[in-house]
Structures are given as structure tokens and as C-alpha cells.
Write a protein that binds this DNA or RNA. Structure first.
Lengths: 124, 124
DNA sequence: GACGTATTCAATCAAATGGTTGACGACACC
DNA sequence: GGTGTCGTCAACCATTTGATTGAATACGTC
């Protein structure tokens, strides 16, 4: 699985059970048994989910006797929000530029000759 | 596929090709053909990717002659960042609370009797 | 109405995913 | 050292996913 970090992170959060695990870990570290209790799947399945979350860098695990407490790690979450926000903002900016261009074209249209053509042109 | 919106959204962005498509759509709307050009996969494969993005609510498609221009939609991106940020912040807060508690316990320890017990208690 | 372009639908396939059960490893406790 | 608890590893199974090819559909143009 030589996948890039973002793919692993997004894929990890694409599962409702794993998102729920993350939500509960946000309230405090916990072991596999405690995490598995609320679900009606086997402990092994939850262990696999935790492995996915760990490989995505979203959680880390320490050792404490035979328990392996899971701890949420903020870094990769930041990576995801940064990615999302970057392109959302880019799209928003473009939207506003387009708005401005259209407004300007309207103004031109109302004052001078009506070109009535070339909608949605690319801005370099 | 009766999946919840967040699962669909995260799953959609878990694929590098789809993330790249999103990145390019952030720079401007585009049709399937244009989007498919840079990749060495078939146009049909890209069409499928776009269907996934559309079902996730990340892009919408209009009709313009035989073309189906794709347009980035900000709403679901916000949904994702809100989810991520919520739990990241929760975890951060807990971290800071724990820090404060430990500092307080240190102070108590140095001034009064050492309890030396009850680590990692749950906060209601 | 035939033709070309842009896009999707359908059948198919290999690989990945999420789940199961059963056996094993690590550790505290008696 | 045997026993119980917590967790993982391994083998297996059904479903989903990403891709392919080939046939359709939708639309402008000639």
C-alpha cells in the first residue's frame, strides 16, 4: 500500500465506524476493548480499523501493560483541512473574480456597444 | 449505496486522481474530455470519477450543447472541514486541560500529601 | 438524414475493503 | 507455572472499487 498520506487520511475517515472512533478518541484516549464495546462487530474488526487510522497517522498507540491506548494526533487533520481549504478558497476567489468580470461587462454593455458573446472565458 | 454524506465526501477525496480533478476544477469549470486529457486512463474512467464527485456533492454539472461542464461546489467541503476541526479542537482542548491538571497535581504534590494514583480519569 | 464530437451505459475483471472465526503472543495475578 | 485478559495475526469470504473495452445516446453541422 504505497499510498500518499492524503489518500490514506481521507480513506481512513471515509468509514462511519472509524469516524466514530475518532470522535470518541477526541474525548480521551482509550484501549481497543473499550472502543469496540459499543459496536456489534468483533474486537478484531475494530483492531483493523485502528490499524488503518494508525497507518493514516491519525492516531498513535502507546503500550501500558497489555493495553494499547490509542491517542489522537492532530497533524494529519491539519494536512487535510489545509488541502480542502486551499481549493475551496481558490474556487471562491475565482467565483468572485467571475462575478466582478460579469458586473463589469454589464456596465460596459449598458454604456457602450453590446457584445453579447464570449461567456465564461478563462482568466489566465 | 445509501451512504451518509460525509462518508461519500471523504471517500471521493481518497483518490489522488479525483483530488487532482478537484484541484483543476478550482481553477475553472471544465468538461470531461479536457479533464481526462492529462491522465493516461480512458475517458470513461474519468467520467466515473466525476460521477463519484457529483454523488458526493463536491461538483455539479450543467449542460451546454453536448458538453457537461463540471463546477466545484463549496458546501460539502465546509461540511468536511467542520467535522475535522470539531474533533481536532476537542482533542486539543482536552490536551490543554490535561496539561493544566498535571501542573496542578505537581503543585499539590510539592506542597501537600502525594496522592500518586487515579491517572487519566474521565471528565464527564 | 448522415457524420463527428462529447459523454455515458453495460459487461467484465483484478485488486482492495470490511467483516468473520480460530489460533497465537504478551502480560498481570494467583 | 497455570489462568484470565487484552490485543494481534492468519486465513477466508462477500462486496466494492478502479479500470478496461465496446456499444449506445445527445447534440451541432454539413
Amino acid at each position: 500500500m504505497p499510498q500518499d498520506p492524503l489518500s490514506r487520511a481521507f480513506a481512513a475517515l471515509a468509514d462511519p465506524t472509524r469516524r466514530d472512533i475518532v470522535a470518541r478518541l477526541a474525548a480521551g484516549d482509550a484501549g481497543v476493548g473499550e472502543l469496540a464495546a459499543p459496536y456489534d462487530v468483533s474486537v478484531q474488526a475494530v483492531s483493523k480499523h485502528l490499524k488503518v487510522l494508525e497507518e493514516a497517522g491519525l492516531v498513535t498507540r502507546s503500550r501500558e501493560a497489555q493495553r494499547r491506548p490509542c491517542h489522537l494526533e492532530a497533524e494529519v487533520f491539519d494536512l487535510m483541512t489545509k488541502w480542502i481549504e486551499r481549493y475551496r478558497r481558490e474556487a471562491d476567489d475565482r467565483f468572485q473574480r467571475l462575478d466582478a468580470v460579469l458586473a463589469h461587462m454589464d456596465a460596459d454593455e449598458n454604456q457602450q456597444q453590446p457584445p453579447d458573446d464570449a461567456r465564461r472565458g478563462e482568466a489566465s
